[in-house]
Protein backbone atom coordinates (compact mmCIF):
# COMPACT_ATOMS: atom_id res chain seq x y z
CA UNK A 1 0.00 0.00 0.00
CA UNK A 2 1.38 3.39 -0.98
CA UNK A 3 1.38 6.56 1.06
CA UNK A 4 -1.65 8.75 0.44
CA UNK A 5 -0.10 11.62 2.35
CA UNK A 6 3.18 11.91 0.47
CA UNK A 7 3.76 15.31 -1.10
CA UNK A 8 3.87 13.87 -4.61
CA UNK A 9 0.58 12.03 -4.11
CA UNK A 10 -1.23 15.03 -2.64
CA UNK A 11 -0.11 17.30 -5.46
CA UNK A 12 -0.92 14.55 -7.95
CA UNK A 13 -4.50 14.42 -6.67
CA UNK A 14 -4.83 18.21 -6.75
CA UNK A 15 -3.40 18.35 -10.28
CA UNK A 16 -5.85 15.74 -11.52
CA UNK A 17 -8.75 17.54 -9.80
CA UNK A 18 -7.79 20.76 -11.57
CA UNK A 19 -7.88 19.00 -14.94
CA UNK A 20 -11.04 16.98 -14.23
CA UNK A 21 -12.88 20.16 -13.21
CA UNK A 22 -12.38 21.74 -16.65
CA UNK A 23 -15.58 20.54 -18.41
CA UNK A 24 -17.67 21.17 -15.29
CA UNK A 25 -16.44 24.76 -15.22
CA UNK A 26 -17.32 25.50 -18.84
CA UNK A 27 -20.68 23.77 -18.69
CA UNK A 28 -21.49 24.97 -15.15
CA UNK A 29 -20.69 28.62 -15.87
CA UNK A 30 -22.72 28.38 -19.06
CA UNK A 31 -25.69 27.01 -17.17
CA UNK A 32 -25.20 29.75 -14.59
CA UNK A 33 -25.84 32.34 -17.33
CA UNK A 34 -28.96 30.41 -18.38
CA UNK A 35 -30.34 30.25 -14.89
CA UNK A 36 -29.36 33.79 -13.91
CA UNK A 37 -31.73 34.95 -16.65
CA UNK A 38 -34.45 32.55 -15.49
CA UNK A 39 -33.88 29.81 -18.08
CA UNK A 40 -33.36 26.22 -17.03
CA UNK A 41 -31.49 24.30 -19.71
CA UNK A 42 -31.38 20.56 -19.20
CA UNK A 43 -30.08 20.20 -22.75
CA UNK A 44 -26.47 20.77 -21.67
CA UNK A 45 -25.57 17.10 -22.04
CA UNK A 46 -26.80 16.98 -25.64
CA UNK A 47 -25.06 20.24 -26.53
CA UNK A 48 -21.84 18.90 -25.00
CA UNK A 49 -22.03 15.75 -27.11
CA UNK A 50 -22.54 17.78 -30.27
CA UNK A 51 -19.68 20.05 -29.24
CA UNK A 52 -17.47 17.03 -28.60
CA UNK A 53 -18.21 15.55 -32.00
CA UNK A 54 -17.98 18.73 -34.04
CA UNK A 55 -14.67 19.74 -32.43
CA UNK A 56 -13.24 16.27 -32.92
CA UNK A 57 -14.37 16.01 -36.53
CA UNK A 58 -13.01 19.43 -37.49
CA UNK A 59 -9.66 18.72 -35.82
CA UNK A 60 -9.55 15.28 -37.42
CA UNK A 61 -10.10 16.86 -40.85
CA UNK A 62 -7.97 19.98 -40.48
CA UNK A 63 -5.60 19.40 -37.57
CA UNK A 64 -6.47 22.92 -36.38
CA UNK A 65 -7.43 23.02 -32.71
CA UNK A 66 -8.74 26.58 -32.82
CA UNK A 67 -11.09 25.65 -35.62
CA UNK A 68 -12.25 22.71 -33.51
CA UNK A 69 -13.14 25.02 -30.62
CA UNK A 70 -14.87 27.45 -32.98
CA UNK A 71 -16.87 24.59 -34.49
CA UNK A 72 -17.97 23.45 -31.02
CA UNK A 73 -18.94 27.01 -30.11
CA UNK A 74 -20.93 27.49 -33.34
CA UNK A 75 -22.74 24.18 -32.88
CA UNK A 76 -23.43 25.18 -29.28
CA UNK A 77 -24.80 28.50 -30.49
CA UNK A 78 -27.11 26.80 -32.99
CA UNK A 79 -28.44 24.46 -30.34
CA UNK A 80 -28.82 27.40 -27.99
CA UNK A 81 -30.95 29.15 -30.60
CA UNK A 82 -33.14 26.05 -30.88
CA UNK A 83 -33.48 25.93 -27.09
CA UNK A 84 -34.28 29.65 -26.97
CA UNK A 85 -36.86 29.35 -29.69
CA UNK A 86 -38.59 26.50 -27.88
CA UNK A 87 -38.40 27.78 -24.32
CA UNK A 88 -38.36 31.57 -24.72
CA UNK A 89 -40.37 32.29 -27.87
CA UNK A 90 -42.76 29.33 -27.77
CA UNK A 91 -42.73 29.27 -23.94
CA UNK A 92 -42.56 25.48 -23.76
CA UNK A 93 -41.83 23.77 -20.43
CA UNK A 94 -38.08 24.30 -20.04
CA UNK A 95 -37.30 21.03 -18.29
CA UNK A 96 -39.00 18.91 -20.93
CA UNK A 97 -37.57 20.84 -23.88
CA UNK A 98 -34.10 20.55 -22.33
CA UNK A 99 -34.43 16.79 -22.03
CA UNK A 100 -35.58 16.73 -25.65
CA UNK A 101 -32.53 18.73 -26.68
CA UNK A 102 -30.27 16.31 -24.83
CA UNK A 103 -31.82 13.32 -26.58
CA UNK A 104 -31.49 15.13 -29.90
CA UNK A 105 -27.84 16.03 -29.31
CA UNK A 106 -26.79 12.61 -28.06
CA UNK A 107 -28.63 10.90 -30.91
CA UNK A 108 -27.40 13.22 -33.64
CA UNK A 109 -23.78 12.99 -32.47
CA UNK A 110 -24.05 9.18 -32.59
CA UNK A 111 -25.56 9.32 -36.06
CA UNK A 112 -22.85 11.67 -37.33
CA UNK A 113 -20.19 9.45 -35.74
CA UNK A 114 -21.55 6.46 -37.62
CA UNK A 115 -22.00 8.21 -40.94
CA UNK A 116 -18.93 10.46 -41.06
CA UNK A 117 -16.44 8.26 -39.18
CA UNK A 118 -18.05 4.85 -39.72
CA UNK A 119 -18.30 4.49 -35.96
CA UNK A 120 -14.55 3.96 -35.67
CA UNK A 121 -12.75 5.22 -32.59
CA UNK A 122 -9.96 7.47 -33.88
CA UNK A 123 -7.62 9.83 -32.12
CA UNK A 124 -6.28 13.32 -32.82
CA UNK A 125 -3.46 15.45 -31.45
CA UNK A 126 -5.21 17.61 -28.90
CA UNK A 127 -4.14 20.51 -26.73
CA UNK A 128 -0.80 19.86 -25.07
CA UNK A 129 0.36 21.19 -21.69
CA UNK A 130 1.87 24.67 -21.69
CA UNK A 131 4.49 25.33 -19.07
CA UNK A 132 4.27 28.85 -17.63
CA UNK A 133 7.82 30.29 -17.49
CA UNK A 134 9.40 30.35 -14.01
CA UNK A 135 6.18 29.33 -12.22
CA UNK A 136 6.14 26.00 -14.02
CA UNK A 137 9.57 25.17 -12.59
CA UNK A 138 8.52 25.38 -8.93
CA UNK A 139 8.70 21.87 -7.45
CA UNK A 140 5.26 20.20 -7.17
CA UNK A 141 3.37 23.52 -7.44
CA UNK A 142 4.65 24.18 -10.94
CA UNK A 143 3.63 20.81 -12.29
CA UNK A 144 0.26 20.96 -10.57
CA UNK A 145 -0.87 24.48 -11.37
CA UNK A 146 1.30 25.80 -14.19
CA UNK A 147 1.75 22.92 -16.60
CA UNK A 148 -1.74 22.47 -17.99
CA UNK A 149 -3.21 22.87 -21.44
CA UNK A 150 -4.69 26.12 -22.73
CA UNK A 151 -8.31 25.01 -22.25
CA UNK A 152 -7.65 24.35 -18.55
CA UNK A 153 -6.20 27.84 -18.04
CA UNK A 154 -9.09 29.41 -19.95
CA UNK A 155 -11.65 27.56 -17.84
CA UNK A 156 -10.25 29.09 -14.66
CA UNK A 157 -9.92 32.54 -16.27
CA UNK A 158 -13.65 32.38 -17.02
CA UNK A 159 -14.50 32.52 -13.30
CA UNK A 160 -13.50 36.18 -12.74
CA UNK A 161 -14.77 37.10 -16.20
CA UNK A 162 -18.22 35.70 -15.38
CA UNK A 163 -18.19 37.36 -11.96
CA UNK A 164 -17.40 40.72 -13.50
CA UNK A 165 -20.00 40.35 -16.24
CA UNK A 166 -22.75 39.25 -13.85
CA UNK A 167 -22.00 41.57 -10.92
CA UNK A 168 -20.07 44.57 -12.23
CA UNK A 169 -21.70 45.44 -15.52
CA UNK A 170 -25.03 46.82 -16.69
CA UNK A 171 -25.56 43.71 -18.75
CA UNK A 172 -25.13 41.57 -15.63
CA UNK A 173 -27.65 43.70 -13.78
CA UNK A 174 -30.12 43.25 -16.63
CA UNK A 175 -29.54 39.49 -16.67
CA UNK A 176 -30.11 39.15 -12.94
CA UNK A 177 -33.16 41.40 -12.99
CA UNK A 178 -34.67 39.32 -15.79
CA UNK A 179 -34.04 36.21 -13.71
CA UNK A 180 -35.48 37.72 -10.52
CA UNK A 181 -38.39 39.79 -11.77
CA UNK A 182 -38.91 39.86 -15.52
CA UNK A 183 -42.04 42.03 -15.29
CA UNK A 184 -40.16 44.74 -13.41
CA UNK A 185 -37.22 44.51 -15.81
CA UNK A 186 -39.57 44.83 -18.75
CA UNK A 187 -41.19 47.89 -17.18
CA UNK A 188 -37.74 49.48 -16.96
CA UNK A 189 -37.16 48.90 -20.66
CA UNK A 190 -35.09 45.72 -20.52
CA UNK A 191 -35.94 43.29 -23.31
CA UNK A 192 -36.59 40.06 -21.43
CA UNK A 193 -36.71 38.05 -24.63
CA UNK A 194 -33.39 39.39 -25.92
CA UNK A 195 -31.63 38.88 -22.58
CA UNK A 196 -32.92 35.33 -22.28
CA UNK A 197 -31.92 34.52 -25.86
CA UNK A 198 -28.48 35.97 -25.17
CA UNK A 199 -27.97 34.00 -21.96
CA UNK A 200 -29.19 30.70 -23.38
CA UNK A 201 -26.85 31.19 -26.34
CA UNK A 202 -23.87 32.08 -24.11
CA UNK A 203 -24.61 29.05 -21.97
CA UNK A 204 -24.90 26.79 -24.99
CA UNK A 205 -21.67 28.07 -26.52
CA UNK A 206 -19.87 27.26 -23.26
CA UNK A 207 -21.56 23.85 -23.15
CA UNK A 208 -20.36 23.16 -26.68
CA UNK A 209 -16.83 24.11 -25.65
CA UNK A 210 -17.17 21.91 -22.55
CA UNK A 211 -17.90 19.00 -24.88
CA UNK A 212 -14.90 19.91 -27.01
CA UNK A 213 -12.62 19.65 -23.97
CA UNK A 214 -13.43 15.93 -23.84
CA UNK A 215 -12.58 15.20 -27.45
CA UNK A 216 -9.64 17.53 -28.13
CA UNK A 217 -8.31 18.71 -24.76
CA UNK A 218 -8.38 15.61 -22.61
CA UNK A 219 -9.02 12.20 -24.14
CA UNK A 220 -8.37 13.35 -27.73
CA UNK A 221 -10.77 10.88 -29.30
CA UNK A 222 -14.50 10.63 -29.84
CA UNK A 223 -16.78 7.92 -28.56
CA UNK A 224 -20.54 7.89 -28.32
CA UNK A 225 -21.99 9.23 -25.07
CA UNK A 226 -18.47 10.08 -23.92
CA UNK A 227 -19.62 12.99 -21.73
CA UNK A 228 -21.35 10.39 -19.59
CA UNK A 229 -23.68 12.64 -17.61
CA UNK A 230 -21.28 15.56 -17.10
CA UNK A 231 -23.95 17.95 -18.41
CA UNK A 232 -26.41 16.91 -15.71
CA UNK A 233 -23.75 17.27 -13.02
CA UNK A 234 -23.01 20.76 -14.36
CA UNK A 235 -26.69 21.68 -13.92
CA UNK A 236 -26.58 20.36 -10.36
CA UNK A 237 -23.41 22.34 -9.71
CA UNK A 238 -25.26 25.58 -10.40
CA UNK A 239 -27.69 24.81 -7.56
CA UNK A 240 -24.72 23.77 -5.46
CA UNK A 241 -22.98 27.06 -6.25
CA UNK A 242 -25.76 29.28 -4.96
CA UNK A 243 -25.86 30.80 -8.47
CA UNK A 244 -22.41 32.35 -8.10
CA UNK A 245 -19.33 31.76 -10.31
CA UNK A 246 -17.05 31.13 -7.34
CA UNK A 247 -19.58 28.56 -6.11
CA UNK A 248 -19.37 26.78 -9.46
CA UNK A 249 -15.59 26.76 -9.08
CA UNK A 250 -15.81 25.35 -5.57
CA UNK A 251 -18.34 22.69 -6.54
CA UNK A 252 -16.45 21.62 -9.65
CA UNK A 253 -13.18 21.37 -7.73
CA UNK A 254 -14.76 19.51 -4.83
CA UNK A 255 -16.44 16.96 -7.09
CA UNK A 256 -13.28 16.48 -9.14
CA UNK A 257 -11.04 16.33 -6.09
CA UNK A 258 -13.06 13.52 -4.52
CA UNK A 259 -13.09 11.69 -7.84
CA UNK A 260 -9.30 12.01 -8.13
CA UNK A 261 -8.93 10.99 -4.48
CA UNK A 262 -11.00 7.81 -4.82
CA UNK A 263 -9.04 6.77 -7.92
CA UNK A 264 -5.76 7.36 -6.08
CA UNK A 265 -7.00 5.40 -3.08
CA UNK A 266 -7.76 2.45 -5.35
CA UNK A 267 -4.35 2.66 -7.00
CA UNK A 268 -2.62 2.83 -3.63
CA UNK A 269 -4.45 -0.29 -2.55
CA UNK A 270 -6.39 1.37 0.26
CA UNK A 271 -8.98 -1.19 1.11
CA UNK A 272 -12.29 0.38 0.21
CA UNK A 273 -14.94 -1.27 -2.00
CA UNK A 274 -14.72 0.22 -5.48
CA UNK A 275 -18.47 0.88 -5.65
CA UNK A 276 -18.30 2.88 -2.44
CA UNK A 277 -15.27 4.75 -3.78
CA UNK A 278 -17.14 5.61 -6.97
CA UNK A 279 -20.12 6.88 -5.02
CA UNK A 280 -18.03 9.22 -2.87
CA UNK A 281 -18.12 12.30 -5.15
CA UNK A 282 -21.89 12.02 -5.54
CA UNK A 283 -22.52 11.39 -1.85
CA UNK A 284 -20.37 14.35 -0.87
CA UNK A 285 -22.13 16.60 -3.40
CA UNK A 286 -25.57 15.61 -2.07
CA UNK A 287 -24.50 16.08 1.55
CA UNK A 288 -23.02 19.47 0.76
CA UNK A 289 -26.21 20.48 -1.06
CA UNK A 290 -28.17 19.77 2.11
CA UNK A 291 -26.05 22.24 4.06
CA UNK A 292 -25.51 24.81 1.33
CA UNK A 293 -28.92 26.39 0.86
CA UNK A 294 -28.86 29.63 -1.02
CA UNK A 295 -31.44 32.35 -0.94
CA UNK A 296 -30.13 33.68 -4.23
CA UNK A 297 -32.04 31.43 -6.61
CA UNK A 298 -33.50 33.46 -9.47
CA UNK A 299 -37.16 33.89 -8.55
CA UNK A 300 -38.32 33.48 -12.15
CA UNK A 301 -36.20 30.38 -12.81
CA UNK A 302 -37.87 28.14 -15.40
CA UNK A 303 -40.93 30.39 -15.57
CA UNK A 304 -41.75 31.42 -19.17
CA UNK A 305 -42.24 35.16 -19.52
CA UNK A 306 -45.68 36.40 -20.53
CA UNK A 307 -45.86 40.13 -21.16
CA UNK A 308 -48.89 41.71 -19.60
CA UNK A 309 -50.70 43.84 -22.22
CA UNK A 310 -53.18 45.68 -20.00
Amino acid sequence: MGNLFSTATIFGIIGMAIRLAMPYLYAGLGELFNQAAGCFNLGVEGIMMMGAFSAFYVVYQTGNLLLGIIAAAVVGLLMGLIMSLISVTFKAAQGISGIGLTMFGVGLSSLLFKTLLQGTVLSVSGFTPIKIPFLGDIPYIGETFFQNNLMVYLAYCLIPVCSIVLYKTTLGLKIRSVGQNPQAADTLGVSVIKIRYLCVCIGSILAGIAGATFSIANINMFQEKMTNGTGYIAVALVYFSGWKPKGVLFGALLFSFVNALQLRMQVLGINIPSDIAMMLPYILTIVTLIFVQSRDAPAALSVPYERSEN
Binding site: T227, N259, A260, Q266, V267, L268, A277, M278
Partner: peptide, 23 residues
Protein backbone atom coordinates in the same frame (compact mmCIF):
# COMPACT_ATOMS: atom_id res chain seq x y z
CA UNK B 1 -6.28 -2.01 -9.75
CA UNK B 2 -8.98 0.61 -10.26
CA UNK B 3 -12.64 0.02 -11.02
CA UNK B 4 -14.73 2.84 -12.49
CA UNK B 5 -18.12 1.15 -11.93
CA UNK B 6 -18.93 1.90 -15.56
CA UNK B 7 -18.50 0.17 -18.90
CA UNK B 8 -18.79 3.40 -20.83
CA UNK B 9 -17.13 6.25 -18.91
CA UNK B 10 -14.11 6.93 -21.12
CA UNK B 11 -13.24 10.08 -19.21
CA UNK B 12 -13.02 8.32 -15.87
CA UNK B 13 -11.12 5.45 -17.46
CA UNK B 14 -8.67 8.01 -18.79
CA UNK B 15 -8.31 9.52 -15.30
CA UNK B 16 -7.75 6.04 -13.85
CA UNK B 17 -4.94 5.36 -16.32
CA UNK B 18 -3.42 8.73 -15.54
CA UNK B 19 -3.48 7.93 -11.82
CA UNK B 20 -1.75 4.59 -12.37
CA UNK B 21 0.95 6.28 -14.43
CA UNK B 22 1.36 9.06 -11.88
CA UNK B 23 2.18 6.34 -9.37
Amino acid sequence: VTYTSSFSDVSLMSAAAETHMDE
